[in-house]
Simulated assay, not measured.
Amino acid sequence: MNRHLQTPCTIEVEHSDESLHAHVALDGDPDIRPGDQVLVHGDPIHVAFGQRRTFRRFATVRRASPLERLWTKVTARFELSELYDVSFTPRRSL
């Protein structure tokens, strides 16, 4: 299995009163799963206040191994519990 995929991508960056965000859309809409990493290549992007700009770049997707995928799912569950003060209590058998 090839653990690396290179693909073109579109980056949308907004820096305004309403929003400060950067979104990356990978061409071909590859399946990104827990633990996968996306690295966008190219020079740093600078967007002045009040602007919204779109860029084209290349990105490399590194697929997580089965162990990395499991670890990501486990740690994400606990991070959410800390963020939202949620407790996970095992069910008792009846």
Results as ranks from 00 to 15, higher is better:
D43W: 14
H41M: 14
H15R: 12
T54G: 06
R33Q: 05
V13P: 00
D29Q: 14
L94K: 10
R91C: 06
R56W: 04
H4C: 10
V61G: 02
R92Y: 07
V38L: 09
L83V: 02
N2Y: 09
M1R: 10
V24E: 02
R62A: 09
V86W: 12
G50I: 04
Q6M: 13
L94S: 08
I32M: 03
G50H: 11
F78R: 13
R52P: 01
D27P: 02
H4W: 10
I32G: 01
T54M: 09
F58H: 10
F78H: 13
N2F: 11
I32P: 00
S16I: 06
H46C: 11
T10Q: 09
L67V: 05
D17G: 12
S93W: 11
S81E: 12
R77Q: 08
G28Q: 06
S93N: 11
T10R: 02
L83M: 05
L5Y: 07
L83K: 11
G50N: 10
S81Q: 15
G42D: 08
M1I: 10
N2M: 13
N2S: 13
V47F: 10
V38F: 06
A22G: 10
T7G: 03
R33P: 01
S87R: 11
S19E: 12
T89G: 05
A76E: 08
Q6A: 07
F78T: 05
T75S: 10
R33G: 02
R92T: 05
E79A: 15
H41S: 07
F88E: 05
D27Q: 12
A25C: 09
H46I: 11
E79I: 11
V86R: 09
V24R: 00
T72I: 00
S16G: 13
A48N: 15
E68V: 01
H21K: 13
C9T: 00
Q6N: 12
Q37V: 14
L20Q: 07
H46Q: 11
S81N: 15
Y84K: 03
R52N: 05
R3V: 07
K73S: 04
R91P: 02
T10K: 03
H15M: 06
F58I: 04
V86I: 14
R92L: 09
D29V: 11
H4K: 15
W71A: 01
Q51F: 12
T7P: 01
D43H: 13
A48S: 14
A48H: 12
V61T: 04
V86L: 14
G42E: 04
C9F: 01
F55D: 00
Q6C: 10
F78V: 03
L80P: 01
P66G: 02
R3A: 07
Q51D: 09
Y84F: 11
R91L: 15
A25G: 06
T54F: 08
L39F: 15
D29Y: 10
I32N: 00
R69K: 06
M1W: 09
S19G: 06
